[in-house]
Design a protein around this nucleic acid. Sequence first.
DNA 1: CAAACCGGGATCTGCCATTTAA
DNA 2: TTAAATGGCAGATCCCGGTTTG
Length: 381
Amino acid sequence: MVAAPGVLLCLGRSLILQRSFRLFPLQLASTSLPRKLCSVTNESKLPASPENESLLENLSLMGVDVKMARQRQPGVLRKVFTNEKGLAQFLQGKGASGKVIASIVSRYPRAITRSIEHLEQRWQLWRNVFNTDAEIVSILDRSPESFFRSSDNRNLEKNITFLISLGLNTKDLHRLLTTAPRTFSNSVELNKQMVEFLEDICADLGGKNPEQFAKTVILKNLYIFIRSTKRVKTNIDILKASLTLSDSELLTLLQGHGAEILDLSNEYLKKNFNNLQQKMALLGCQKDDIKKLVISYPMILYIGPETLNCKLDCLLKGGITMKQILKKPKVLEYSTQNITGRLEELESVGYDFKKHGINILDSSRKRFVAKMEKLTASSDD
DNA sequence: CAAACCGGGATCTGCCATTTAA
DNA sequence: TTAAATGGCAGATCCCGGTTTG
């Protein structure tokens, strides 16, 4: 039922015919020469097989950026048998425009080495998760590599089965494949490793339900599968150490919003934490304040040093106290621009943060505008 | 009723290094 | 030895609105 993954040459007959063969016995000749002779000059040292001229021509006609393709996967351009026409037809049949197809091939040239049978099969597997061809096309346009990097359809099938076995439903899979399509091109083993790793973490921390824990983390951080366990582990260690968390505190954090920052690069997480620590100290906060702050709002570690400092300064300058920020850190989630704009508006109507708190900064534009209208109306009287 | 709480949705590829296969 | 397959990395928030609460 499943084609052997290794078989990838299935070029349409038309291809073989249309392709001109320019196989010169150059390499044979040169490779058989004694090394000494070959290394006399730079030129003769490189017996690299030539690029396939007719392939190049086809690609140009398709509007492919050959220079880009060459830079990314030079080997593909030297192949004698490829399936660019078949691929183009296939994708066109799925609703992709010529421009999109060209862009896909430019960015991931190896796509043209896939056979029609392979493509059909892979597409069907993706259709198990996506409802329409158009959705898949848009992902391919976004990230051709995610679809084409692996030729192992069996592995893809196993991945889907595996993810379902974790208790993820159709909607979850859909979100996962949309958000982090690379997940499905990972080897199942790699994905399994991540799940096992998460389960181990949970067990180590004294959690009672590792499977549920892993599922929770995955759903809260859809990028987790395209990260290395090493990165995730390091981040967990960083969190634990820098906040001096107990096992159960850490467990709670990770199952909650802490999951969202696990995919940060290690250095970035460290840098952000250090900055937060420094800034807080400067503002007269205690170590415990930092801990509480991060636990209640882990996403603060997602904010880069410059942005974070800027936001804090803006708020403080606007007459808001650190205490209030600690109580309602979510206001930091809005852009600096948004924050400063709102502060100005509120200032103009003499809004009293002491009396009303700062919740107003954490509201959708619509709600904020509605609120402002009321405030201006009453202050006009 | 308004305010406060809270979760969800958007988004995240394109490159490089290493290992494996032919 | 080349090309294919695979793993891994850096990058760096913002916003909305349903539901609960008071």
